[in-house]
């Protein structure tokens, strides 16, 4: 989008195809956006986003799917729901980002940052195996794959001291039930 700054974007429609798609598929109407920026001001990762939540909504309005699929924010959003919680119009921005992520993955778009997909895959694996995600085992898996053993080690130690990290994985009581559910879901998807 930045590279084409000197070619005006032509607004041929009063809304974009993506805007209509969101309304149809996940029932989110971004016409209610007041453009106030409360979502972005309080976004827990907004300071490192290339496009803040308000701009993401605006990009949907402009129908700029390329920028949306390629942006960094798509992969570093924590889905913490603060934007939704604070939005005066109740626009479910995390759901929009989920939808866009799904679309990007389906289209095979690679995240701009390294190892994002690996981390997500490992996290889902962890969830599939144990029914819950425990930070320490997940981090060990991730570091074994990437070889970055000492990255964030200091932060991890601090978190451990504050009791935010437990070395013992927590497990759900009947993980086999979850496994059954997941396999059913998988076969359903194949049909």
């Amino acid at each position: 989008m930045d590279t084409e700054i000197y070619t005006p974007l032509r607004l041929d429609e009063i809304d974009s195809a993506l805007q209509r798609e969101l309304k149809e598929k996940i029932d989110i109407d971004i016409e209610t956006c007041l453009e106030c920026g409360k979502c972005s001001g309080g976004c827990s990762n907004g300071h490192i986003f290339d496009y803040t939540p308000r701009k993401i909504v605006q990009l949907v309005k402009l129908g700029d799917e390329e920028t949306l699929a390629g942006m960094d924010a798509l992969w570093i959003c924590l889905s913490c729901q603060l934007c939704l919680d604070r939005c005066p119009s109740g626009i479910d921005i995390p759901r929009i980002l989920d939808y866009l992520r799904e679309k990007a993955v389906t289209r095979g778009v690679k995240a701009s940052r390294p190892d994002v997909h690996l981390f997500m895959e490992l996290m889902l694996e962890e969830a599939r195996d144990k029914g819950r995600v425990s930070e320490v085992p997940l981090m060990i898996r991730f570091k074994r794959k990437t070889g970055q053993y000492l990255k964030d080690a200091g932060l991890g130690f601090k978190m451990f001291l504050k009791g935010k990290l437990s070395p013992f994985p927590s497990r759900m009581q009947k993980p086999e039930g979850l496994k059954k559910l997941l396999s059913e879901r998988k076969s359903e998807k194949k049909d």
């Binding site: 700054i5 005006p8 974007l9 032509r10 041929d12």
Partner: peptide, 8 residues
């Protein structure tokens, strides 16, 4: 809102 030129 986006800082881009537009036209209609």
């Amino acid at each position: 809102l986006m800082g881009i030129p537009v036209e209609v």
